[in-house]
Computed example of a mutant assay.
Amino acid sequence: MTPLTLPAEDSGAFTPPTLEDMHLPAIFPWGAHEGFSKQMLMVLLSVVFIAWFFIAASRKGQLVPGKLQFAGEYLYGFVRNSIGKDIIGGKDFMKFVPLLFALFFFILVNNIYGAIPFFQLPTMSHVGGAYFLAALVYVTWIGVGLKKFGARFLKLTVVPAGVPWYILPIVVPIEIISNFIVRPMTHSLRLFATMLAGHLVVALAGSGIAFLIAQESVVLKGTSLLVLVGATAMYMLEALIMVLQAYVFTLLTAIYIQGALHADAH
């Protein structure tokens, strides 16, 4: 058996973390590979936490808000004005604020889990959650367009205004693929891939530090400090990306809704 085929514990080789390391055993299993997992528990806890925070922040409305009320009003105002009103427009935005609000804070909390000790797992690093949210948005903006324009919305979506008729055989298939296939896929995969990649990098750095510290060489032990500095920087960058991805996902949702509402202006 060559050294390349020896197990890590026999050869002393570094064993990097894998995707399987991010799928923890089910808390309450009900099948060979199924059960109530840590990820599911964290998703439920995020809903409880978000509901508790904003109910507590709005329970005692005061003219001069306290810290909790101020934080709740500021966060709500950010989604309402900076995403809803600025993107969708002052005439139609209010009816979509609950959706934008729920999406932003649900994604934010489930992303931030990855930066919190003990939780240490952004639930959106599992593609199922990202697919579900993207599918919800997909159905929403198409429904908004159909409600306003009827079946004509489908034509407005795939036939850009002002395009010569002889170019339409090329443009229409591209628009169909772009709007109805690529858009929901990129909407979900952007969130999932960034959360998964960032968490894997941090996990890889952590495993590397543990491996270097366990070595007998003083040089390798000292190298672990450099890896720690890099891992700290990556940790902070991942935390920033967690917030940005919640914002980007919600912003794109508002853009898609705005496009559906004004499809006849394109």
Rank of each mutant, 00 (worst) to 15 (best):
M124W: 00
A197S: 12
K147A: 13
G206A: 07
M94R: 15
G162P: 08
F211N: 03
A263M: 09
L204Q: 08
F105W: 14
V219A: 13
L225S: 08
E175A: 13
S207V: 11
D10I: 15
G222H: 05
M185I: 15
P17S: 07
H187Y: 03
I174H: 06
A32V: 12
F106Q: 14
G208E: 05
F28W: 10
V227C: 05
K221T: 05
I170S: 07
A231W: 03
K147F: 06
L200E: 08
V79T: 06
V201W: 06
F70W: 05
I174F: 07
L200P: 01
A32G: 12
L6V: 07
D21N: 13
I107L: 06
Y113W: 10
L156R: 04
W165A: 15
V171E: 04
A26P: 08
L156D: 02
I181F: 14
F36R: 04
T253A: 08
L226V: 13
K85F: 13
A214I: 01
P29S: 05
M1I: 11
G77Q: 02
N110F: 02
I257M: 06
K148Q: 07
I116P: 02
Q215N: 08
A71R: 02
G114C: 03
I27N: 03
L146Q: 04
V48W: 00
V202E: 07
P3F: 10
L196N: 03
V137R: 00
W165E: 15
G89P: 04
G90K: 11
I170V: 15
L68G: 05
E175G: 04
H262C: 11
Y256K: 12
A134K: 00
S125T: 03
I88T: 05
G198V: 01
T140A: 11
V97H: 03
V201K: 12
K95H: 09
L99M: 11
L100R: 01
T253F: 02
A13Y: 10
A205P: 00
V48A: 15
P98Q: 05
H199M: 05
A51N: 10
L68F: 02
I170E: 05
I255N: 08
Q69F: 01
V227L: 12
L133I: 15
N179K: 13
L154M: 11
Q245E: 14
E9K: 07
V171R: 02
F36P: 11
F36H: 03
V127I: 13
L68V: 13
Q39T: 15
V159I: 10
E216M: 00
A263T: 08
F149L: 00
I257C: 06
H262W: 03
L237A: 12
G162K: 11
I177Q: 12
T140D: 06
D264E: 13
A203M: 11
W165I: 15
K95L: 13
I83Q: 04
A203C: 01
K38T: 14
V97I: 12
R152M: 09
I27A: 10
I167K: 09
F106T: 15
F14M: 01
T15H: 09
F192C: 04
M42S: 05
S125M: 07
T5C: 09
Y131K: 09
I174E: 04
Y131P: 01
